[in-house]
Amino acid sequence: MLKRIALAAAAATAFAGIAGSAGAYPDKPITLIVPYKAGGTTHTMSMVLSKALGEELGGKVVVKTRPGAGSAVGVTFLSKAKPDGHTIAYTDLGNLIWNPMTKDDVAYTVDDVRIIAGVSEYQLALIATPDKPYKTLDELLEYSKTNPLNVADMGGMSKTFINYIAAKEGVKWTAIPTRGGGEMVPFLLGGKIDFAYSGGIHQKHGDKMIVLASFLKDGLAKSPEAPTTQERYGIAMPGNSILIAPAGISDEIAAKLEAAVKAAMDDPDFTQVLENIQFPKRFIPSSDVTAFAADVTKSLEEVLASMQ
């Protein structure tokens, strides 16, 4: 008798399992992987985004940080996860493409992940201080012809782009590595370096810093007058934060996630956090995101090819 009940129970659970996977999504908490350190901008955004996403999907979204190797550790982990929509990641488009392109040991390729949607945009710029003899990109280039300048980069992509521009213009810039805005800002304000690459931190310093150029294809939200590297050199850096899932995810679940992201972006808390860190929203629907990523990839390939 007991055995029969146990069997019936097992059958019922198995059936419920089948019914669950076919119908309701999500049927268990969703893990949102953040491939950066806790406390950074990506993680800060993800904390509020996960809450709003959970409300939209009618489930719980749990943020797990999986930092390392400029997001490659977390993205590799995601690319190997079960593609049932219960493991997704919030990361940035730039490093997603750049890492497998430049590092042999990175185990994933861009084809192993599916981009659900674009969410917001980092404000990547070339900046200087107002006390310098150059106020625009043209003046900087002119000044660089007679003066060897030091420019702060933040490693990887930013350094390669800076060197690309210097090579195109035939000027001599020395790229100085800095570990993020916390190190770059005092060096720039203290006059130790001549100009710098910024991931968006310049917006917090108001008129103490001036924007020379935008690395984003479509310009910067707060400094639309700054020339873009796209119009000058035909190259741009991707600054988008994106939601991704393993490549095998079904179209149905991907569509559900995309709709949830779109709705979650109107969440007042999410809006507030983006305003605090001064990163504009930039929703890119899945229909456009593939073309967008391909465009960006071409840009990065060109820069890399010319630097080798």
Binding site: G68, A69, G70, A72, V73, T76, T102, K103, D105, V106, A107, G155, G156, K159
Partner: peptide, 13 residues
């Protein structure tokens, strides 16, 4: 950004 003593694993990047 060259690898030093990473033994081919991204965990040591």
């Amino acid at each position: 950004s060259t690898e030093r003593m990473t033994f081919g694993t991204i965990y040591l990047f």
